[in-house]
Amino acid sequence: MLDNYITEVKGRVDSEKDISVAVRNDLVRLAEARLSDSFERYHWNANIHGIIIRLYTNSAHLYAFWAENWYPAPRTHTVLPHAVMYAVTGVNGREPKAHYNHETKTAVFINTEYYGQCKSWALGMAADILETQHNVHSIHGSCAIVGGKGVLIIAPTGTGKSTHTWGLMQLPDGKIHSDDWVFLQYKKGLAMADISERKFYLRTDMVKSFPVMEEMLKKCKCENVEGGDFTAFANSRAILDPEWIAGPDKFVEKAVIKAVILLRRDKDSPAEVKLNAIDAIKILQEGKYQVLAGAGGKTGEFKTESYYNPYLLIRRTELQNGFFTELFESASCHILNTGIESVEQTQVRIRQIAAKA
């Protein structure tokens, strides 16, 4: 029987990312009161690139996905978290909503069990600390290695990052590095990439492109798979061990980025454009994209999200642009339009770019 949980909320909820400490304290008291209503209280320390984030929740689903997704951090009285997330359900009189206070590094989710947003904000909380204290660049993207060279794909949710990363892995000299988020450090002219999570949280409809995945997904923890059909709902998800995909030899934890691919989806732009650093940063800073299922907002409408990254809880434009300038000093950049070509045609273009990197 499929290990699948159907959430009432199936996408991102409205949020406030700049609440005051006073509002934060009120929300924490509300969350603690709800957690005290029952024996069902869970907490777990996640280690996200050295940043410890503790989850408190009354949702067995969120707890199970959280513990499965991240590398564990020690759970002792001598190890304190850098940031804390509360995620509580069953709060009467409250609409589903997410809140963040930067000063205390505290997030509070009310009445939503959709794991995707909790995961996203955990990465955003880690980024809030890492980018200013440790000079680590956080990117919403996926990464593969081809012939020893890292290929980083940066794009909005649902535009094919995972599909094309997996496509590169199919090459004899291809390996997979990350599916959704990459930590970068710039050292001696190189862009060094590290993974962010222990297991991938990915869309199950990838079985359309990779049918071999179906047997793997049947053994995974799943979210919002309707009627046992992995393609029925566009935002159904699973937690997958990357070593299952093609064996441990096809998964790597570090990479040196030599090519960056941006993806967009429209009916007018050229299929491929090579970008200089200035133009690439301009496109990233604007972050125009079309909303797809699970990405928040009305499906099909156009929105903007700087750097294609809805996970960043604190916007530091000058710092981000500086990071990307360093990236494009060591890696080429192309933008591809997935709205006018097939997945197979786009994959051919990416492979050609990787070969020349």
Rank of each mutant, 00 (worst) to 15 (best):
residue 4 N to P: 00
residue 10 K to C: 00
residue 11 G to S: 10
residue 17 K to F: 09
residue 19 I to Y: 01
residue 22 A to H: 07
residue 24 R to S: 12
residue 28 V to F: 02
residue 29 R to M: 12
residue 30 L to N: 07
residue 43 H to F: 10
residue 45 N to R: 07
residue 51 I to T: 09
residue 52 I to C: 13
residue 56 Y to E: 07
residue 56 Y to D: 03
residue 68 E to S: 13
residue 78 T to C: 11
residue 79 V to D: 05
residue 81 P to V: 06
residue 83 A to I: 03
residue 84 V to P: 00
residue 85 M to L: 15
residue 86 Y to M: 04
residue 87 A to V: 05
residue 87 A to L: 01
residue 95 E to W: 09
residue 97 K to I: 06
residue 97 K to T: 04
residue 98 A to M: 10
residue 100 Y to C: 02
residue 105 K to I: 03
residue 109 F to M: 08
residue 111 N to R: 07
residue 120 S to K: 11
residue 123 L to R: 03
residue 130 L to M: 15
residue 134 H to W: 11
residue 135 N to R: 07
residue 141 G to D: 05
residue 141 G to W: 04
residue 144 A to I: 11
residue 144 A to D: 03
residue 146 V to Y: 02
residue 153 I to G: 01
residue 159 T to G: 01
residue 160 G to T: 07
residue 161 K to I: 06
residue 166 W to Y: 13
residue 184 L to Q: 09
residue 185 Q to D: 02
residue 188 K to H: 09
residue 189 G to A: 04
residue 194 D to K: 12
residue 196 S to P: 01
residue 196 S to K: 08
residue 200 F to K: 08
residue 203 R to V: 03
residue 207 V to N: 05
residue 209 S to H: 14
residue 213 M to G: 12
residue 218 K to F: 04
residue 220 C to N: 04
residue 223 E to Y: 01
residue 228 G to V: 11
residue 230 F to M: 08
residue 238 A to T: 12
residue 239 I to C: 13
residue 242 P to H: 10
residue 246 A to I: 05
residue 248 P to L: 06
residue 249 D to Q: 13
residue 251 F to R: 08
residue 253 E to H: 14
residue 257 I to W: 02
residue 262 L to Q: 11
residue 264 R to W: 04
residue 271 A to C: 06
residue 276 N to K: 15
residue 278 I to S: 14
residue 281 I to G: 01
residue 282 K to W: 06
residue 285 Q to C: 07
residue 287 G to S: 08
residue 293 A to T: 13
residue 299 T to K: 12
residue 302 F to E: 09
residue 305 E to K: 15
residue 306 S to H: 08
residue 310 P to I: 06
residue 315 R to M: 08
residue 317 T to A: 12
residue 323 F to V: 10
residue 324 F to W: 15
residue 326 E to Q: 13
residue 328 F to M: 07
residue 328 F to Y: 15
residue 331 A to T: 09
residue 333 C to F: 06
residue 335 I to T: 10
residue 338 T to S: 15
residue 344 E to F: 09
residue 347 Q to G: 10
residue 348 V to T: 14
residue 350 I to M: 10
residue 354 A to D: 04
